[in-house]
Amino acid sequence: MIYLLVAWAFLKIGLFAIGGGLVTVPFLFDLAEQYGWFNNQELTDIIAIAGSLPGPVGINMAAYAGFYAANLGGGILAPLCEALPSMLIIYIIVRLLNKWHENKYVQMVLNGIKPAVLALILFAAGAVAKEISFNAISVALFVFFISAMHFYNKNAVVYIILSACIGIVLKI
């Protein structure tokens, strides 16, 4: 029964998360609230671990989140179910609709959704922020990290490892 729930939850994420890995985060926060498979703090840790290991971040998060929901079985089922809609959609696109993305209505919907997706990700950021105790040090670190990310654009792994070391040194 739990496997059916996990499969259904991640099929929906695979179908509705348009734009790749981090876009699935707000959907995962919905799962945290709806089913309680993991709490917001655990989910924040999942995002970090998924981002520091190899592979597509969305798939990694699904595997870890599925593991929290239903152990190994869930950890295998969740990424498969999240990948399934993409596979089907690509299959349909190459089979049937060669020029589908030039279609006026498809363009309208895709462009119309983009601003809402931004709001979704910002909402997820709010949920992560709730897990952080804000003081002078954490705010300074946040400003440091976001400027470094934006202007030097190094791989996320570099920043995650750096932040772990800083966390231990400063006893955050």
């Binding site: 734009g19 981090l22 985060v25 703090q41 924040t44 840790d45 995002i47 970090a48 981002g51 983009k114 601003p115 997706v117 931004l118 990700i121 910002l122 997820a124 950021a125 992560v128 922020a129 897990e131 952080i132 954490s138 670190l141 946040f142 990290f145 976001i146 990310m149 934006h150 996320a156 920043y159 995650i160 750096l162 932040s163 772990a164 070391c165 800083i166 966390g167 231990i168 400063l170 006893k171 955050i172």
Partner: peptide, 29 residues
């Protein structure tokens, strides 16, 4: 130590997510 490391990492994750919004802003809105 694992908890302290994740204390630091959480700040980094917040920055990662906010940075995603920042990068997507111009092409989305």
């Amino acid at each position: 130590y694992v908890q302290q490391a994740f204390g630091g990492i959480r700040i980094c994750v917040l920055a990662l997510i906010v940075n995603t919004v920042w990068n997507m802003w111009q092409s989305s809105i």
